[in-house]
């Protein structure tokens, strides 16, 4: 299977007080056709910025370097018109807030049909018929009636379904879902995840799922990349990473969520805070909070080291037990 998306050495810098600071650095990952990759990390670690940079939706003041290859083509080098042809057509995006992601003044049928008219050259009436079909696919009852409704007439879960319908309209090869279920309650979350999984399977669509919820990752993803302070700390197949986490940060994350099985234990939060972009430590970015910290950690970044098949971890502890990843 070939890679739909390949991100290589991505670095994103923002200007603060006339100096550039890296919010994201050395980020590399790939997504195969039809595969779901989870991008996990706490707030502010650079997940959303990474996803926006793939769509080239960051403001002009952000400096993006490295390469983002979509089917072998570097998106960072595309002109604005070509990039528009990819957005919504080849790569789609779902946002976190279904309440504000829909335009309140347009009927939802029109919003769903918009990208079809834009990219596929459908007429308004064809787009409307297609919109009804899409509403049916995402499980909205009475699609031929609600197609003429406005967003305020929908609940949060229904709006997220509409968002998915919009994203799926042109049958994209890659869907970027930025915390798609964070704003929804738990029962709806499961439905939305199910729906996304079903549609992805039907269309052989790859998903880049951005979340801070490890439960969602376990349920949805084939592989997972754990980000911390703008760098990928650990990456590998979901089963492998969850059963056998290598990086102290990943272990910390897992310990900070409650478990239903086993003896009742106190949750172990990760002490301390994420370092500020303006004041990144020279060595490992997690060093200040890491329970296993060594002298070398504060001086030098270990780089990503092999931990198993397709499994890599950014940690000096890995240096002694490094294995071939292929």
């Amino acid at each position: 299977m070939s890679n739909v998306l390949e991100v290589k050495d991505l670095e994103i810098q923002f200007e603060i007080d006339e100096k550039y600071y890296s919010a994201v650095k050395d980020v590399s990952f790939y997504i195969r056709e039809g595969e779901t990759l989870g991008l996990v990390g706490e707030s502010g670690c650079g997940k959303s910025v990474t996803s926006l940079s793939i769509m080239r939706l960051l403001q002009d003041t952000a400096k993006v370097s490295g390469a983002i290859l979509y089917n072998g083509e570097n998106l960072l080098e595309l002109g604005p018109a070509k990039m528009r042809g990819i957005r919504g057509n080849e790569i789609s995006m779902i946002f976190q807030e279904p309440m504000t992601s829909l335009n309140p003044v347009h009927r939802i049928g029109r919003q769903i049909g918009e990208s079809l008219m834009l990219h596929k050259g459908l007429s308004a009436s064809e787009a409307r018929l297609e919109a009804i079909e899409l509403l049916r696919k995402v499980g909205i009852p009475r699609p031929d009636e609600v197609v003429d409704d406005y967003p305020h007439q929908f609940s949060g879960g229904m709006r997220q379904r509409v968002m998915i319908a919009i994203a799926m309209a042109c049958q994209p090869k890659l869907l970027i879902a930025d915390e798609p279920t964070t704003a929804l309650d738990v029962t709806i979350q499961a439905q939305i995840l199910d729906l996304m999984r079903k549609l992805a399977a039907e269309n052989n669509m790859a998903i880049l799922l951005i979340t801070h919820d490890l439960g969602v990752v376990a349920e949805m993803c084939d592989r997972v990349a754990v980000m911390y302070a703008g760098k990928i700390m650990e990456q590998g197949p979901v089963r492998e990473v969850f059963r056998n986490p290598q990086n102290p940060y990943t272990i910390g994350l897992m310990n900070s969520i409650p478990k239903l099985e086993g003896p009742r234990m106190r949750l172990q939060p990760i002490e301390g805070n994420v370092p500020s972009v303006r004041n990144m430590p020279q060595g490992c970015r997690f060093a200040a909070r890491c329970p296993y910290v060594m002298d070398i950690c504060r001086e030098q970044d270990p780089g990503l080291l092999g931990a198993g098949p397709e499994h890599i971890s950014r940690c000096w502890l890995q240096a002694d037990r490094e294995v071939q990843t292929q």
Binding site: L57, R84, T100, N103, E114, L118
Partner: peptide, 28 residues
Amino acid sequence: EFEYVQAARALGASTPRILFRVILPNIL
């Protein structure tokens, strides 16, 4: 700043389209 403006951009809408078909109707 509303997310639907970003969403429209993510759908491949051009800047004039965003100005006149997304933002303008909302401030009518």
